[in-house]
Design a protein around this nucleic acid. Structure first.
Length: 115
DNA sequence: AACATGACGGTAG
DNA sequence: TCTACCGCCATGT
């Protein structure tokens, strides 16, 4: 078997999503950028839609660039996703829009701090 | 193989 | 503020 290949984009995305701290949120674009494909935000969304339980368990911390719960229907209704976020202390500026200014977590910031 | 769609993002008008 | 278009690329028809 060939070894030494770089990790798949999917695995990088999943790893980043799992590192999102509770009470914080990030965006598809930020994850895509941190994974090395800034213009593949759609792939991040697609991957989360097909993510294993280990990842989908914290996927509610991923919102779109406007802080809207665009993936909320994955829980049956955006209200469920909102409840999960509120339970972690995330505040909202609208029915289904989180306060990005207040809770945004950038994966690149993590990489810069821990090296 | 061509076309449409999608848990997106950025730019242009 | 809102609409439209492009880029990205896996999946379904």
């Amino acid at each position: 078997m060939s070894g030494g290949e770089p990790p798949d984009f999917a695995e990088r995305v999943y790893a980043l999503v799992r590192r999102i701290p509770p009470g914080r949120v990030t965006t598809y674009g930020r994850i895509a950028r941190a994974a090395g494909a800034a213009r593949s935000a759609r792939m991040v969304g697609w991957l989360l839609h097909h993510s294993p339980p280990e990842v989908s368990d914290v996927a509610h911390r991923v919102v779109n660039r406007n802080g809207e719960l665009t993936g909320g229907w994955a829980w049956g209704h955006p209200a469920v996703m909102r409840a999960l976020l509120e339970d972690e202390g995330v505040t909202f500026v609208d029915e289904y829009q989180v306060d990005l200014e207040k809770h945004l977590w950038d994966p690149l910031d993590e990489l810069d701090q821990s090296g």
